[in-house]
């Protein structure tokens, strides 16, 4: 289980991307993180496996504190977290198989990695995973020959091959058409259920979040402003997340809510979000 406590990130420029966010992800649940652009969703996910260095707080995976690790220990911790990227981040000029097998790089020696020599088990499993994501027979295609939806499935296959304890998914659908988006989301939730691992997804399409997630977390200005089931996400909650509205006194059911930013502060951003 992933347990994040009071995570903070302040960039050298002084921008506060995360102002103390806490979140637990357990079992095989799918947690969707929504919020306007710039709310800190990507920063949060990237701080979990420390592609971005958090400036405060703690991240624990199955009791192991991630934030203090370095070198070999950090790499071993990263092996347990599969990450899927918005722009797929495949090695475009390598074959699909090499991309999938690169999920095992944390386990092979550098020399074997150079010779593309992976264990037979890994290769067998790579074939299985490729079948599972619907790309059987594509192993010798180069990644740049595939369509967007196919590439994202290669990205998922690479992450599963790590046998991760959690999947971190950063905007998996924003470069895809609606149909491919659904296929990718179906696949992710299916894997979570079958492999019994939790999935933490950043997503900006609220309808997809409501449809696929077991729990939704709303982020605004680096703070958690909403947490609850898809049914709790009513107009008031959306108002808080996307327009920074104060909770009206005695309004309908909302999730467990932290304090939201003051309306005055966010009036400028509000306009930007509406335009976007």
């Amino acid at each position: 289980m992933l347990s994040v406590t009071d995570l903070q990130k302040t960039y050298p420029s002084g921008d506060e991307a995360l102002k103390g966010v806490s979140l637990d992800v357990t079992g095989s649940e799918t947690v969707a993180m929504i919020g306007p652009s710039g709310a800190g969703k990507s920063t949060f996910i990237r701080c979990v496996n420390r592609l971005t260095e958090p400036t405060g707080g703690s991240v624990e995976l199955d009791g192991l504190e991630i934030t203090g690790l370095s070198g070999k220990e950090l790499r071993n911790a990263r092996r347990d977290m599969g990450m899927i990227f918005q722009e797929y981040n495949l090695i475009e000029r390598l074959t699909v198989m090499e991309n999938v097998l690169s999920g095992r790089l944390g386990y092979v020696s550098t020399w074997d990695a150079f010779r593309r020599k992976f264990a037979g088990d890994d290769i067998e499993r790579a074939y299985e995973v490729l079948d599972r994501v619907g790309l059987g027979g594509h192993e010798n295609n180069r990644a740049d020959e595939l369509s967007g939806g196919q590439r994202q499935r290669v990205g998922i296959a690479r992450a599963i091959l790590q046998r991760p304890k959690i999947l971190l998914v950063d905007e998996p659908t924003s470069s895809l058409d609606p149909e491919s988006s659904r296929a990718v989301m179906d696949l992710l939730t299916e894997i979570a259920a079958e492999d019994d691992i939790p999935v933490l997804i950043n997503i900006h399409e609220v309808d997809l979040a409501e449809e696929y997630a077991g729990r939704i977390v709303g982020l605004r200005d680096g703070q958690k402003v909403f947490e609850g089931g898809p049914d709790d996400l009513d107009e008031t909650a959306r108002g808080q997340i996307y327009r920074g509205e104060e909770i009206p006194e005695g309004a309908g059911p909302t999730g467990k809510v932290a304090e939201a930013g003051t309306p005055g502060e966010s009036s400028q951003e509000e306009g930007q979000i509406r335009r976007g």
């Binding site: 074959t95 097998l101 264990a119 037979g120 290769i123 067998e124 074939y127």
Partner: peptide
């Protein structure tokens, strides 16, 4: 490695 299980598939990088 792969030799113990004959049904296991192998893969070589296409050249």
């Amino acid at each position: 490695m792969a030799t113990e299980q004959p049904e296991q598939r192998t893969w070589r990088r296409p050249t």
